[in-house]
């Protein structure tokens, strides 16, 4: 999932300072799961905005809504069209892709992000998430016992440990396990140590921004 964190309130409040009708738009996808932009967080942020304005004696109207997936136009478009003219600004609690989807669909509409999008990660426990995938576009997890060296090795090495690790920890930080040492133990456990003797793959690093086109899924446009 994509992991994001709410921006400091000071920054959010400054962004929307000049607006009176604010649509706080959550996303029921990743940001709900990482507890930063789901319906519950939408309610919290809306309440905080109202409380702040009440303190300052300024009027505000908040509208709360959450899209199924804010990165999917078919989920965003009908919802915002239904709410048209009820708000001056959209405060999006989705990841950067969600914010951009709203901005692209409604180019005349002001959209602000309420979250900072951090990474694609996994939950270690409730409330703890770690980065797990850099979306390199050429996955080698099958050869590395399910541990991603691109993401988890500080140097992003593809051909084994650098030699800087001490007691299984990376030289960058004592809290950071050496990805290649974990890969070694993982492969050993799976009886696949011979993988390490293979030549490292030459990776096809992606060009950003990436684009995926699936001709089999595209709808033919009537000419």
């Amino acid at each position: 999932m994509i992991v994001a964190e709410r921006k400091p309130m000071e920054e959010i409040l400054a962004e929307i300072e000049d607006f009176q009708k604010i649509l706080v738009l959550g996303c029921k996808g990743c940001t709900t799961v990482c507890c930063s932009g789901g319906p519950k967080e939408v309610e919290t942020l809306s309440t905080l905005i109202r409380m702040d304005r009440k303190q300052k004696g300024k009027e505000v109207e908040t509208l709360e809504a959450s899209t199924e997936l804010q990165c999917e136009p078919e989920s965003v478009k009908p919802m915002l069209e239904n709410l048209a003219n009820q708000y001056d600004v959209v405060l999006s609690m989705a990841c950067g892709a969600g914010v951009q989807t709203v901005a692209k669909l409604f180019p005349d509409q002001r959209v602000f992000p309420a979250l900072n999008t951090n990474f694609t990660g996994m939950a270690e426990e409730h409330g703890v998430w770690t980065e797990a995938c850099l979306a390199c576009g050429d996955c080698i997890l099958g050869k590395t016992a399910g541990i991603c060296p691109v993401t988890r090795c500080a140097k992003g090495l593809l051909n084994g440990a650098c030699g800087g690790a001490s007691e299984g920890k990376c030289e960058v930080s004592k809290d950071r396990p050496c990805a290649w040492q974990e890969i070694y133990h993982g492969l050993k456990r799976l009886n696949l140590l011979h993988y390490l003797k293979e030549k490292p793959q030459v990776k096809a690093w992606p060009i950003h921004p990436g684009k995926v086109v699936r001709e089999d899924l595209r709808q033919e446009k009537a000419t």
Partner: peptide
């Protein structure tokens, strides 16, 4: 009790 209940009470 969620954070929202507490904030709403204050609001």
């Amino acid at each position: 009790i969620s954070v929202n209940h507490i904030l709403r009470a204050l609001e």
